[in-house]
Computed example of a mutant assay.
Amino acid sequence: MPHGDDLDARFNELVAQIDTEEQRKMRAAAKRGAKERDSGGEFGVSPGRHPGVADPYRRPRRAGRAWLAMAGITIMIAAAGLVVMYRPDLLAPMGPVPEETMPVMGAPLPDEPEPTEAAAATADPAAGPFAGSPAEDWAEGADGFVIPKAKALGGLSKKDVAKGLERTRELLAAAYLDKKTLLGGKPDAFYRLLHPDQRRWFRDGLDDKKDSTRSMVNSFAPKTAELATGVIKVKGRATLGTFKDKYGTRGVKVMLNHVIVYAVQRPGQPRTATRVATHAVNEVWIYDDDDGVTTWVWEFGASATPARCDVPDGFIHPVYEDSPQDKVGPTGIPVDPYDLDAKEPDGCQAAQET
């Protein structure tokens, strides 16, 4: 792979070919695109309103918010059909997104030999797919979902808060660990844990091609991935606060911040194994109403790295080293996908390698 200085020089030479006016147009086009992707507003269309809760049906978050990383840090500029990459050898023809099970391979660099079976395999398979990554020493599965200790708050007793926190932990496990959901199946586990007034909205929105409620859970698009290991790494934190809406309802809000990391591969192709990190920043409300203690999903969803940005169907479309070119280029300074404090992506955020 070329050295950093060579990459910078090549990139600057290409950018220099774009005059000032064209760069201005490109920036304007990028801003318009971001506005169009987020034009759904703060809330989605509400099929109804839960008593006392203001507009609770929030717009799904994954569409247009995926992070991207492939073959190291990749930087792209896209405007008027122009795509500039540090690795032009990995460019694939533009057009309809091919099946992820039909990879497009780039030619090897002149100074790189053809990969062999031995070279393609993990150097130390016994070390596991998380070896050498920040997630190596993280907790496994539900043990990583940190939930605060219950206490009397927001007009609720300690017992009622504890009940809501337990349901919150179950929602996290159903959204991010349930194997059926992860592999693109019906997210029944998450559906059953929702408040009855949210279930129909969630179910009916699963097939929405623009703002699918599928993005509330982590689901790899069918035929694009299988788990390379049953181990899922999780790290995070959660805090308690209070809320009071304009109707006078008050209670406890649980603010959740977790990174969940999976090892996945193309179905039946272990040589393609890669890590996908998802950053979930969510909020759940706990309050008392006529039905007793209610746990209400206020905001749920996650961004994924590396994942395609150009398929806004609510599924995660993982990016492998040999994947075809994404039609939506990432923007911004590449962020660390393992960083809990990383800013939530606005549009397609560039990210470091997982």
Rank of each mutant, 00 (worst) to 15 (best):
T101L: 12
T274H: 10
A9C: 11
A350T: 10
W298L: 02
D341F: 11
E100R: 15
P196Y: 15
I77E: 14
G329P: 00
I73G: 00
A127Q: 09
E13G: 08
R37C: 04
D111H: 13
L165M: 07
V234I: 07
Y338T: 01
V328I: 10
A30G: 10
T278P: 09
A280S: 12
N218R: 15
P108W: 14
W296I: 07
D197C: 02
A121G: 09
K179D: 05
M216F: 14
D160E: 15
G72A: 04
G128W: 11
D5Y: 05
L172F: 10
A142Q: 04
V254F: 02
P2S: 14
G4F: 09
G241N: 06
G44L: 11
A135M: 04
G230Y: 02
R266I: 10
L91C: 01
G329A: 09
L177W: 05
K31V: 15
V254S: 09
P93I: 08
A350V: 09
L90P: 07
V231P: 11
G132R: 03
T116Y: 10
V281P: 00
Q349F: 01
E136M: 00
G347D: 01
A16N: 06
M102T: 15
A54S: 10
H279Y: 13
A9G: 07
A273F: 06
E99A: 15
P324Y: 01
S215K: 07
D211Y: 09
E353H: 12
P110D: 13
A277S: 11
A263M: 07
A139S: 07
K233S: 03
M255Y: 00
T274G: 04
A120P: 02
K246W: 14
M255L: 09
Q352M: 07
T168V: 05
R275S: 00
Y57I: 06
F220W: 14
F315M: 02
K158H: 01
D208P: 01
A263P: 13
A107N: 13
A173F: 05
T116L: 03
V45W: 02
L182R: 07
Q269N: 13
T20I: 06
I333D: 14
A123M: 15
